[in-house]
Design a protein around this nucleic acid. Structure first.
Length: 849
RNA sequence: GCCCAAGUGGCGAAAUGGUAGACGCAGGGGACUCAAAAUCCCCCGCCGCGAGGCGUGUCGGUUCGAGUCCGACCUUGGGCACCA
């Protein structure tokens, strides 16, 4: 063996894998299949350490499964539609398509040296017409299946740029470019009926055993099933047609504590009042200046306007409540109208205090006196409380019981009905933007909205567009909109809305099973490869992307594009943490921060100027803070294996990992050390002793068992710690050269998922047959794993004071005798019997006295 | 504001309710070297000379025993439906 030179070695082995075609996914019915997928990247132009981490984890799984004898599918593609391409076109000129495909080429070139086990023959980008054309075909099928509809919905409208803004483009209520106050504007938009599946998407979460608990909880909360009462108030003084006001409440047990009713500014009644009342119009206009995001709404100061309208309390016709328009009531949830019970809701309490409304407690803590509340009393629904203004059920009962009997009581009196509601809203997919999948419908003056004929798909984006003015280029294109009605043949106009990019990413996993098929999927391929056995990506996708994908798989099944088994497309999910780095800055004369790249810093100073830097603790790598490490530089300096090893070694995969130069160097040193051990064994064969061989065998099989277990459990940092231990053993071993060679061969296998190039090199040098990547995974010999003695710590009153070593299966009674005979124990007990003696066989002893 | 996580030596971390700190980094000491780098060996939670005491964000609780379970709080991160 020569010196460890990753630059040459890594390219050599990548070529060898390519020549052997080991990463080509083959539909081989004789083998079990394994589909591992990392969330595909947005082609921003540069890969970053987060990508390296994500793909390395997937690569470890893929290579491990190949060694386990699976037929593995490990594809890669590009989530290529979206706003940044249009922003780039606006800022720098050029075309989103050129920018995007250029970025894809750049990023792919940066990824290749990592030596990932990807089947590149399946690569596609969502902006390929072949891909989005199939998406349009599915849209038409879903439209026909009743899963798509149009309705009005609000968007952020920039009145200066005359364009729709994304939530992230609204900063403190103003447009990011124009700085104009953003308005809410209603547009007719396309929706997927995800709400049809609310109950099912919720119930099916229970079956996702290999998903993180936190993700299932987040999705369950997002779907937000609630049981409540929907009923109508009779109104007094409301406009024509508004004799009734429907409200929904999850706390009907607090009806006797009601002190007002409130409606959303977007409620039909508010709109009716707006027309005839300048005061209402002004207030509602004010409310609409808040952005459309729920966050903005919730953070805004809670405000209301008394409409002068009154409603009769359903349990007491003489009791009248004022009706407010309130900025915190969402039109999309329930009926867009509520009653407020300030005593038991923090927001209602704040509101009532502000507007001088009565605050009457309905229930109290069990055993508390009826004194005025200084704050809302909001116990868990499962907690027992004493009802003082209840009207249903026991005086003392849980909130849950109170709600249930209130619903029953109201239903029997003819006041409304119990309903199950969901927080989940239908999925609005219309975007008034160019760089997305065109929605394949046409607007015909005679026939109305007509689906485009499948024969005319894909509806391609025109290339001749400009971005020199705000707004949707499709809208102002001279000819693109012109078409004929597929139904009547008359002149018609195309829909200019494109689809939300979440649609693109909701089925790419299915497309990878047959990326070049003339239909969205190929039944035989989908049947063989689905589901994704292991999906890996960021926790930031816990709700939207994953929920939309779960819905889309169901919709694809309903329209015949996926088998029934694939309605939950991801069998197992792993969410990895971010890659972080320290931030370095100096300041200019005005004290403004100037950020510096890590490579500009040496010994706490900027190398070029010698100026000392301030160091800010690690944060997510971001270009603006310049705390980025370019994977390309790391690979050039140390090789891909070093980057892979370090990114896996230090932190548990689900947690954030901090990139440090020292850590990367340490990884490089370690790989060199392994190389040197291999070299010494190869060059200086020595006779060892048989005890040394036996000890090495035990350590080796312990390592096989531990590393295998760790990889199975996504504990790559622990797998690496075990390999460090094995390396320490190897470098001190007194075994024969044959035993050492064999052990190194096995160690190369254990390391190969993480550092595949080095593993091939060592495998070859140790006389391994073929490529290590295809060698069967080693199995631990159970006989070499058993321990015949156990060292038991002895605790006295829970504190460790001594230890004894006993045969593994010594009966408890004998262990007790030994413990009582122990010097330390005897001294502490001083002749007295212990109060308690706890022996946990094989683990620990606790003497209580 | 609401939902979900995380918090352990100087640092990254480990620990089926059972010896807190495996493994690694940094640091200290030593070997080798003319010297340095590289490599190898040893030490390394805090306080204390020591015996010992204290230690897993904070405060309480359950338990023979809590980093781990329960409750409240603090801080940081993710999401909040048009960023991807």
């Amino acid at each position: 063996m020569a010196r460890y030179e990753p630059g040459q070695s890594e390219a050599k082995w990548q070529q060898a894998w390519a020549d052997a075609g080991v990463f080509q996914a083959r539909r081989d019915t004789a083998k079990p299949k394994y589909y591992v997928l990392e969330m595909f990247p947005y082609p921003s132009g540069r890969i970053h350490m987060g990508h390296v981490r994500n793909y390395t984890m997937g690569d470890v799984v893929a290579r491990y499964k190949i060694a386990q004898g699976f037929s593995v599918l490990h594809p890669m593609g590009w989530d290529a539609f979206g706003m940044p391409a249009e922003n780039a076109a606006m800022e720098r000129g050029g075309h989103p398509k050129t920018w995007t495909y250029g970025n894809i080429a750049d990023m792919k070139a940066q990824m290749q040296p990592l030596g990932l086990s990807i089947d590149w023959s399946r690569e596609f980008a969502t902006c390929d017409p072949e891909y989005y054309g199939q998406q349009q075909a599915m849209f038409l099928d879903m439209l026909a299946a009743g899963l798509v509809y149009r309705k009005n919905a609000v968007v952020n409208w920039d009145p200066v740029d005359m364009t729709v803004l994304a939530n992230e483009q609204v900063i403190d209520g103003r447009g990011w470019r124009s700085n104009a106050l953003v308005e809410r504007r209603e547009l007719t938009q396309w929706f997927f009926k995800i709400s049809d599946y609310s109950a099912e998407l919720l119930a099916a979460l229970d079956g996702l055993k290999d998903w993180p608990e936190k993700v299932r909880t987040m999705q369950a909360n997002w779907i937000g099933q609630s049981r409540g009462l929907q009923f109508a108030f009779e109104t007094l003084g409301a406009p024509e047609g508004f004799g009734q006001l429907e409200v929904y409440t999850t706390r009907p047990d607090t009806l006797m504590g009601a002190s007002f009713a409130a409606i959303s500014p977007d409620h039909p009644l508010a709109r009716a009042l707006e027309a005839g009342d300048p005061g209402v119009a002004a207030f509602v206009a004010e409310c609409r200046r808040v952005g459309t995001s729920e966050e903005a709404l919730e953070k805004a100061e809670k405000r209301g306007l008394d409409t002068g309208i009154r409603v009769r309390h359903p349990l007491d016709p003489a009791w009248e409540l004022p009706v407010f328009i309130a900025n915190f009531i969402l039109m999309d949830y329930g009926t867009g109208a509520i009653f407020g019970c300030p005593a038991h809701d923090a927001r209602d309490f704040e509101f009532a205090t502000k507007y001088g409304l009565p605050i009457n407690a309905v229930f109290l803590p069990e055993g508390a006196a009826d004194t005025p509340l200084s704050d809302a009393y909001v116990p868990l629904k499962s907690e027992r409380v004493r009802y003082v203004r209840g009207f249903a059920g026991e005086a003392v009962q849980t909130g849950e019981a109170g709600v249930a009997s209130a619903i029953a009581q109201c239903e029997s009196r003819g006041i409304g009905r119990g309903v199950t509601n969901y927080r989940l809203r239908d999925w609005g997919i219309s975007r008034q933007r160019y760089w997305g999948c065109p929605i394949p419908v046409v607007h015909c003056p005679a026939c109305g909205v007509v689906p485009e004929s499948k024969a005319n798909l894909p509806v391609r984006l025109p290339d001749d567009v400009t971005f020199d003015q705000p707004g949707n280029p499709l809208d102002r294109h001279p000819t693109w909109r012109d078409c004929t009605c597929p139904k009547c043949g008359a002149a018609a106009r195309r829909e200019t809305d494109t689809m939300d990019t979440f649609v693109d990413s909701s089925w790419y996993y299915a497309r990878f099973t047959s990326p070049h098929a003339a239909t969205p999927t190929d039944a035989a391929e989908a049947d063989y490869w689905m589901n994704v056995d292991q999906y890996i990506g960021g926790i930031e996708h816990a709700i939207l992307h994953l929920l939309y994908s779960r819905f889309f798989a169901r919709a694809m099944h309903k329209t015949g594009h996926l088998p029934a088994k694939a309605i939950e497309p991801f069998n197992a999910l792993f969410t990895q943490g971010m890659v972080t780095h320290e931030i370095y800055l100096t300041r200019d004369a005005a004290g403004r921060p100037i950020y510096h790249l890590p490579e500009e810093i040496e010994g706490g100073k900027v190398s070029a100027t010698g100026k000392a830097v301030e160091v800010i603790p690690s944060a997510k790598m971001s270009k603006s803070k310049k705390n980025v490490v370019d994977p390309v530089n790391i690979i050039r300096a140390f090789g891909a294996d070093t980057a892979r090893w370090f990114i896996l070694s230090d932190s548990p995969p689900e947690r954030d990992v901090e990139w440090t130069a020292a850590g990367a160097e340490a990884a490089y040193k370690f790989l060199n050390r392994v190389w040197l051990i291999a070299e010494r064994v190869a060059e200086a064969p020595a006779a060892g002793d048989s005890a040394g061989d036996a000890a090495l065998a035990r350590a080796l099989h312990r390592a096989i068992a531990d590393v295998t277990h760790a990889i199975e459990n996504f504990a790559f940092n622990k797998a690496i710690a075990k390999i460090y231990e094995l390396t320490n053993t190897l470098s001190r071993a007194t075994a024969s050269s044959a035993a050492m060679t064999s052990a190194l061969r096995t160690m190369a296998q254990l390391m190969s998922p993480m550092v595949p190039h080095l593993a091939e090199e060592i495998w070859a040098a140790m006389g391994g047959a073929g490529l290590v990547v295809t060698a069967p995974w080693p199995k631990a010999d159970p006989a070499l794993l058993v321990q015949d003695t156990a060292t038991l710590p002895i605790q006295i009153n829970g504190k460790r004071r001594a230890e004894i070593t006993v045969p593994k299966d010594m009966p408890t009674a004998e262990v007790e005798k030994l413990v009582l005979a122990d010097e330390t124990v005897a001294r502490v007990l001083a002749g007295q019997a212990p109060k308690k003696l706890i022996v946990v066989p094989g683990r620990i002893v606790n003497v209580v006295h």
